[in-house]
Design a protein around this nucleic acid. Structure first.
Length: 421
RNA sequence: GGAGGUGUGGCAGAGCGGCCGAAUGCACCUGUCUUGAAAACAGGAGUCCUGAAAGGGACCGGGGGUUCAAAUCCCUCCACCUCCGCCA
């Protein structure tokens, strides 16, 4: 939810943000009107309640003779209060709905427009020239005995897979390396629940435009998380944090579940786009004034990981229309995919400013000891998908794959993955 | 799955349907005293909404109900604890 102070003081900025996202600026005015109405109904109900309260107390002190008359008037007042409260309630529900309809205010500098209007910030690393026919990750992975998509489909359906042997090791190694790096920088490692309550899923903003992406367990009223961002954002909900000694940084390890509704025919081959994968995710709680700086740090840590696995990549500043509802800015790191001669998203880091924390009621105490809404950020350190880029970029003419040096200690020292057939 | 119990402010722990936003203790902050501290004494101290402010309203696990009036009565959900059963 956006900050109401900003909305009241500078509605023009919020309208501009809506336009940049390609969304309706009229929602801003609807929200302002709903806010106005809510405040007036609150005032009315408060006043009636105050009157009733005083009157009610006088009944307690009244003599038995005066009571019946007082009770009659008391009943009337009670009815008046109830009516005002109904009005107040309606106004508050309408206001909350209008509030939720407005996504986070886009940060200055974010390119306007949709999916294709991103800005490339920089390209890092050298794209490799191959003097042989490149294999795609599926061919490579099957040759190495790293995964089995056919049996994945047999057992669970399309977009499911088994990581087998070296593939499983590769994923564990990768995530372990990510976990080690995170811990080095002071992150607390967390293994998080994969199922969360509705209010947590809702609070993180995933039940808005992307609700169809989320698996729901209707019988149990729980949701399967699409990233550990969800449980980590819920971790401190309804709490007042002590951020006086710096940000709270968590690194969540979890399986992630996505329905991939509407992506039929997209990345159907292999393990690029799947219903279930594993991820190591950074999640940070900090103060709003430090959020932008922290965002750059998260990006830096993502780049460190990409350097460790020796992948060429570019960084894009995602366009406003392609941001999630909670994000004010998002940077993606996309690795080069030789088999398709295109870039493939490997990491994504979002600055949610106070938007997400406001919904989840996560605050901190400022220098004056007053509670203020915290800022939250998240960013990817490694996922199953990284295996795709690693296999393709480090493949050899014979179908073997060179293991990047930094990853070797996590694979028992192995420097080459060799075909099993 | 069955039976029972508990849920009050940072912690501990009172609380008769009206005088309870809530006793008391500890912890905390500020003064006095002291060279400084401790002790003692005095005072302060929750969160949210609303309001320019003064003030007003709400909050005793969450939600709903009864009542002129609910921390206190009723319903429901959630969490925790104990016992029995079952499964790992």
């Amino acid at each position: 939810m956006i900050d109401l102070k900003t909305l009241r003081d500078n509605p023009e900025a919020v309208r501009a943000s809506q336009l940049a996202r390609g969304e309706d600026p009229a929602l801003v005015d609807a929200l302002l009107a709903a806010d106005e109405r809510r405040r007036s109904t609150v005032a009315k109900a408060d006043n009636l309640r105050a009157e009733q309260k005083i009157f009610s107390k006088s009944i307690g002190r009244a003599t038995p003779e005066e009571r019946p008359a007082l009770l009659t008037r008391g009943k009337e007042m009670s009815a008046e209060v109830k009516a005002a409260e109904v009005e107040q309630n309606e106004a508050e529900v309408a206001f909350a709905a209008a509030h939720r309809r407005v996504p986070n205010i886009v940060q200055d500098g974010v390119p306007a427009g949709g999916e294709d209007d991103y800005e490339v910030l920089r390209e890092v690393g050298q794209i490799r020239e191959f003097d042989f026919e490149v294999r795609d990750h599926v061919e490579l992975g099957e040759g190495l005995g790293a995964f089995d998509t056919e049996r994945g489909a047999k057992v669970s359906g399309s977009r499911f897979y088994f990581l087998t042997g070296i593939g499983a090791q590769l994923q564990l190694g990768l995530l372990n390396m990510a976990a080690a790096q995170a811990m080095e920088h002071g992150f607390q490692l967390m293994i998080t629940p994969s199922l969360v309550r509705p209010e947590i899923m809702d609070g993180t903003g995933f039940l808005g435009a992307h609700a169809s992406e989320v698996y729901k367990l209707a019988d149990d009223d729980l949701y399967l998380v699409g990233t550990s961002e969800v449980p980590l954002a819920g971790y401190h909900s309804n709490e007042i944090l002590d951020l006086s000694s710096g940000p709270k940084r968590y690194a969540g390890w979890s399986s992630c579940y996505r329905r991939e509704a509407g992506s039929y025919g997209k990345d159907v081959r292999g393990i690029i786009r799947v219903h279930q994968f594993d991820k190591l995710e950074m999640f940070v709680y900090t103060t709003p004034d430090q959020a932008a700086e922290e965002h750059q740090r998260l990006l830096g840590w993502e780049e460190d990981m990409l350097a460790k696995v020796e992948l060429p990549y570019r960084i894009i500043d995602t366009a406003a229309g392609d941001l999630g509802s909670s994000a004010a800015r998002k940077f993606d790191c996309e690795a080069w995919l030789p088999s398709q001669s295109r870039y493939l998203e490997l990491t994504s880091t979002s600055n949610c400013t106070t938007f997400q924390a406001r919904r989840l009621n996560t605050r901190y105490r400022d220098a004056d000891g007053k509670p203020q809404t915290a800022a939250t950020l998240n960013g990817t350190l490694a996922t199953t998908r990284w295996i795709v880029a690693i296999l393709e970029n480090h493949q050899q003419p014979d179908g073997s794959v060179r293991v990047p040096e930094a990853l070797r200690p996590y694979l028992g020292g192995k420097d080459l993955l060799e075909p099993v057939k």
